[in-house]
Every structure is written in structure tokens, then in C-alpha cells.
Amino acid sequence: MQWFLEATTTGHKLALMVVAILLFAAVMAAILFAVDRPKRVPNWLVAGGFVGPTLILLLIGLVYPALTTVRGSFYDRDGSEFVGLDNYVTVFTQDNFQTVLRNTVLWVVLVPLLTTALGLVYAYLVDRTRFEGLAKALIFLPMAISMVGAGVIWKFVYEYRPDQPGVNQIGLANQLLVLFGLEPQQFLLNGPSNTFYLIAVMIWIQAGFAMTVLSAAIKSIPDEIVEAARLDGVGGVQMFRYVTVPSIRPALIVVLTTVAIVSLKAFDVVRTMTGGQFGTNVVANEFYAQSFRQFNVGLGAALAVLLFVLVIPIIAYNVRQLRLSEEIR
């Protein structure tokens, strides 16, 4: 047993990894072998062999924990006493949570809107140009970088050195300010603008996703429509406004909602760059702090449930819009 739980050397870890994969394969093979009899086996048994493992894992790993957390949000910090809605009252009334909620709203509104706008404009500008492939790859690259990595990259851009003779700025943003004769700034320390500098990082990460999906949508606009508009004398900005944007509306909504959900749940950027200090905290980060730093499980659960509840209308809107666009078709 010990061998399976405590791997300390590189060789042991790699061996454990191989064993885990083989073990999994053996279990799955056994299940499939059991249900795959040449004789008539009832369909539900075969289906059970195929779907069963997934359903069991989802019940244990998603459904049961989610229900437990919803229940936990009505209990006190160690889950021993029922407190009704107290945790939620705390979240919505206490002063320090007001900042957290305000920032979360800013993230969920600004990141999707700006990301989508940027991705759309860029996809439109580079569409069918000679350097389209390269231009897209450049914007796309941050998608491969972790949010932690992106946080480090931008923390370095925002790095501040006091404005004294003999001291050089090492962060790009402040160097630019100095070049233009302005005072260097503590980008991450001074509120409330620091939240916007963090939001910029999230936009930087997500723009590639928006651009890819929107670019594919732009390319799928039928040639006839573009051609007809052109013959009518539509060009440039008008073409963008009256032909491109309406034609890709479903893709726009998908991008907006997807990015909204990602930015609602993401805490990596805030945690890496400011640790949630200086008035930059968001719900997802505060959830982690309450649950695993303050050990206030009840309050942490309430924040997690808040995230859950906020996701639902976004997805409902998305599904509704998809239904509508399918009806039109």
C-alpha cells in the first residue's frame, strides 16, 4: 500500500504513473470483458459497462460534493451548527466583501466584452491577409501559458522602481511612462485602478480563444452575402457593422458567455499578482482564502455556491440563444 501512496524518487513516481495507467486499463478491460458475452446480454447491462464507471465517478466526485457544499453553506465555520442564511448575509453586507463583489462584477462584465471586441476586430483585420497564419499564432500563444505564468509575465511588465537618479526601471510599462516624461506608477498597489490592470491580463490570456472562434465564424459567412453587399456598394466599416457582425451573432454569444464563466471562476491571476490584497480580491480567490486559509468552511461554501448561482443565468442565456438561432434556421 505504502508503495502506491508515497513516491519520493523520480523512478518511483514514473513507475507509479505507469502502474496507475495499467491498473486503470486492466479494470476497464475486465468490465468490458464481463459485459461482452456472445450470448444475448440485456442492453442495459452492456450500457452499464460502458457508462457505469463515468456515472459512478460523477456521482461521487461532482453530485455528492456539490450537494454537501450547498448544505454546508447554511452551517457555521466548522460545520457543526446550523446558521441559516448568516453566511450569505455576511457576503452581501460586510464591507470587505463589498469590494470583492464589486471586483467580481467588473471582471465578469469587462473581460468578456473587451476580449470579444478585441478578438473580433483582430480576426476581421487579419482575415485573408498574407500574414494571417503568423498574426493569429501570435495572439493565440498565451492560451498555452498557464494563468500563473501569465501572471508572472505581466507582474514583470508592471514592475516598479522608485523614480530616483541612477535607478533604472526594469518593468516595460513604467519604462514607457518614464520615456514620455511621466512619473512611474505602482500599477498593482494603487486602487481602484489596479483591478483594471489585472483585468487586462485576463483579456490578454483569453483573446486568442475569442479570435479563433470568431475567425472561423467570419470565414463561414457565405460568399454570396459578402458579394451582394459589396455590389450594393457596402464597404469597410459598414461591411463590418451590417454584414459581418450580424452574421456571426451566435458565435459572438458563445464567446461572450464562455469567457464570462472562465473569468468568474478564475483566481490564478489575482492570486499570483496581488494575492487578493490592495482591494483587488474576487469571489473565486476569497473562496480559496476562506476555505483553506481562514478555515471558515461555511463562508467558503457560501462563496462557492455564489459562483455556482452566478454561472447558471449565463449558461441559461447561452442555451436560449442557441435555441433561438436554431429555430430561425
Binding site: L5, G61, K265, L303, A304, L307, F308
Partner: peptide
Amino acid sequence: VVPIQVTLIPLLSLYVDTGLNGSF
């Protein structure tokens, strides 16, 4: 729809109970 955050603490106590905690 379920955010990962909602599942973390119950899952963690499940892992502690089964003795898997802190392993791969």
C-alpha cells in the same frame, strides 16, 4: 455547470477519510 470550487472541500475530506490524501 458545476464549478470545481463547489466540490473541493467535500472531496478533500473524502480523500482524507480514505487515506488517499497527499498522493498522486
